[in-house]
Design a protein around this nucleic acid. Structure first.
Length: 356
DNA sequence: TAGGCCATCTGGTCCT
DNA sequence: AGGACCAGATGGCCTA
């Protein structure tokens, strides 16, 4: 997709080349730096180098050299077209460096925000552990499945304890994650099962801690990674226990859901409403899934505003389940965080309906 | 040691 | 012009 255009020269590439030189040289390595600071350090080193070693005069010289670059046989390369690049004066260099550092900081905080949202999502997943976090991709997959499964509970009255519910939850997940989910849902009240789970999770062929799920939950997931996820916390088991028993999910009860785990304090937007969300059933056009898939794979998103990504399509939802919040989000091009909020709301809703 | 996951930097593109 | 978003590149950490 976005193949980086080769730039013969220019303000950026000079700095980049000096960065590359720095990294290869290893002169910016500092064993005690945090990863975040490392980047800054390298950048600042680069700036220093580019100032001291590629000072304005030197850089002008480089540009001159470049203008007269000749091929291996001595023939002149075609002259660069377009507007002549401005010379990288010291002042411009400084401005560029400052701009770059600002952009890096923004990008960092943007990614932190994204990770926070993912953490919030993890907290409302059937399997939550502070110590054994689901990977990003598994979190999204599980979220999609969870919504799908919950909407089945709402629409068809399927029991959350049913085998089908677990199958839906585990669809497309890596085997360790499937095992983890299966373990969560199969756990009885006996606390020693937690230890069992910790002992066994991640091992091949676990197939449910209680031994009741067996082979049916072993999704081979070809091509999917198999990260080592294993344990989960008692607090979340309580959460799941409540869910299993069909009790109302009480977000305010510190003894149940919040013991040891930070409460989900993100904005809980109102659910998209059952009528507006779950009841509206329309077959998705192939273009819909195509569009969302391509937006997910990033083959440049001219077709869709880039911020309207959804997590619902990379593995595809089975037909007849277009009522999912994430699916609806994708249909109506809701931003992902809205979809997540909707997801959270439907989680609460489903829990409460289970109590009816 | 290979592979998976992650954080960060970076430059391109789009939008305001 | 500057910010947001994106994807590629890179290197670190961890585990099997």
């Amino acid at each position: 997709m976005m193949t980086k255009p080769f730039r013969k020269s220019g303000d950026m590439s000079e700095l980049v080349s000096s960065l590359t030189w720095l990294e290869e040289d290893g002169s910016s390595q500092d064993g005690e730096e945090s990863p975040e600071m490392r980047g800054h350090h390298v950048l600042m080193e680069a700036g220093r180098h580019s100032c001291s070693e590629l000072g304005s005069e030197d850089m002008e010289e480089e540009e001159e050299e470049e203008e007269e670059v000749s091929g291996p046989n001595g023939e002149m390369a075609p002259k660069r077209r377009g507007p002549k690049k401005k010379k990288m004066t010291k002042a411009r260099q400084e401005r560029f460096r400052a701009r770059r550092m600002k952009a890096n900081a923004r990008e960092r905080s943007r990614m932190h925000g994204l990770n926070d949202a993912l953490d919030n999502l993890r907290r409302v997943m059937p399997c939550y552990s502070k110590t054994q976090k689901l990977s990003k991709i598994e979190t999204l997959r599980l979220a999609r499945n969870y919504i799908w499964a919950l909407s089945e509970v709402l629409e068809n009255g399927q029991s959350p304890e049913s085998h089908g519910f677990m199958e839906m939850l585990c669809k497309g997940l890596s085997q360790p994650t499937s095992n983890l989910v299966a373990g969560c849902l199969q756990l009885g009240p006996a606390p020693l099962l937690i230890n069992k789970l910790e002992d066994k999770c991640g091992g091949p062929g676990l197939g449910g801690v209680g031994g009741q799920v067996g082979h049916a939950l072993s999704y081979p997931s070809p091509g999917l990674p198999s990260p080592p996820y294993g344990s989960l916390e008692a607090s979340h088991l309580l959460h799941m226990k409540g869910f299993k028993a069909g009790q109302a999910f009480d977000n305010s009860s510190p003894n149940e859901c919040n013991s040891g785990t930070p409460p989900y304090d993100g904005p809980l937007t109102p659910p998209l409403s059952i009528s507006g969300n779950f009841a509206l059933k329309q077959e998705p056009s192939p273009q819909d899934s195509e569009r969302n898939y391509t937006s997910h794979t990033g083959h440049h998103a001219h077709y869709l505003p880039s911020q309207h990504y959804t997590a619902s399509t990379s593995a595809g939802l089975p037909g007849g389940h277009q009522g999912h919040p994430l699916f609806q989000a994708s249909r109506y091009e809701l931003p992902l965080d809205v979809a997540f909020d909707s997801f959270t709301s439907s989680h609460l809703l489903a829990s409460q309906m289970g109590a009816m």
